[in-house]
Amino acid sequence: MKHSIEVDSIILNNEELFIENKNIKSIEVSGKCILNLFNCNIIDLEINIQDNASLIVNYFNNINELNSRIVVKANNKSSFILNHSFINKGKYNLNIYTDFIKEEANIVVNINGINNGGKLNADVNGYVHTDKLNNVLDENMRIINLNNGLVMSNPNMYISTSKVIANHNTTIGGVRLDELFYLMSKGIDKKEATNLIIKGFIIKIIDNKKLQNKITDLIN
């Protein structure tokens, strides 16, 4: 595996990386790449996906306090998928900006977060400009809010072309009651059933076994 990590910035070329407990400032992508991030501090990150390149980021963070700004630039025929899950017990400000530089690119942002009594402010801003054609933008944010946490969430789309497919949805709620009933009906008590549901919710969008296992260990 050929890769180079400079201080805070990563250059990826046709590779998969697992990074833990680091601060990341920029990611430059060519070819097909996958980045798995466990408890990395992302404060101000810029991601640039070159023409025809693709990047999947699986990113979990256990948060006490974090102000995070992520800017994504997708070039011609590129693809970017962010699968971000987190548990927030303190204060989490998340601002994501996605922009299509050219045409026929794909951006998907999946966020599954647990806000456990914390204060969460999650904004996802997707831009599609007039002259940028045939791009696809998909934003999905699902938050389970526990113990009287506070959630402010804004999925924003700034779209000035009709040649785009853009979709966003946000769900904020508690643990799903049909799932709770199901697990309890197998003989699991309410507390453990809730933990299982939370664990499943957090890892189901993470497309990497090692990262899934790390998260499971952390939650257990």
Binding site: E179, F181, Y182, S185, K186, G187, E192, L196, G200, K204
Partner: peptide
């Protein structure tokens, strides 16, 4: 519900739901 299940009652639902991210094995072992 838990107490009923532990007492031996089992429901096979008309349309069983899915719970991605929680495996059969870990659920059953627990």
């Amino acid at each position: 519900v838990t107490e009923r299940a532990r007492a031996g009652i089992f429901l096979l639902n008309q349309s069983p739901i899915e719970i991605p991210g929680v495996t059969n094995a870990e659920m059953l072992r627990l």
